[in-house]
Amino acid sequence: MSYATEHLRRKYIPMSETAFYILLSLADEPRHGYGIIKYVERLTAGRLTLGSGTVYGTVTKMTRDQLLVVYAGGGRRKTYEITPAGAEILRLETERLKELYTNAAAHQEGSP
């Protein structure tokens, strides 16, 4: 069953690095805003420190498009959870990135 509409696919794929990492950070468990920023920082070994304005803008857009849902968790902190549509968009983007990587690696191996 497909959750992501054609409109969502066209809108989000290919995806920006920020949007990809936000979805990836929520793939396993819900997180609050600062949790997302810290997780991405850890995952990229400090290369990427997302700005709170950028993250807030992206999660708000994704919530509006139903890729994420939001609730108030412990300490009334806004916590974001990925929806089936969000998980599907993440899977499609991951497949696209895998193809990119495979082709790039094959090209590199084949080149003199």
Binding site: H32, G33, Y34, I37, S52, G53, V55, Y56, R77, K78
Partner: peptide, 8 residues
């Protein structure tokens, strides 16, 4: 948004 920035 303000809560978000404060957390960060």
């Amino acid at each position: 948004a303000h809560q978000f920035h404060e957390e960060a």
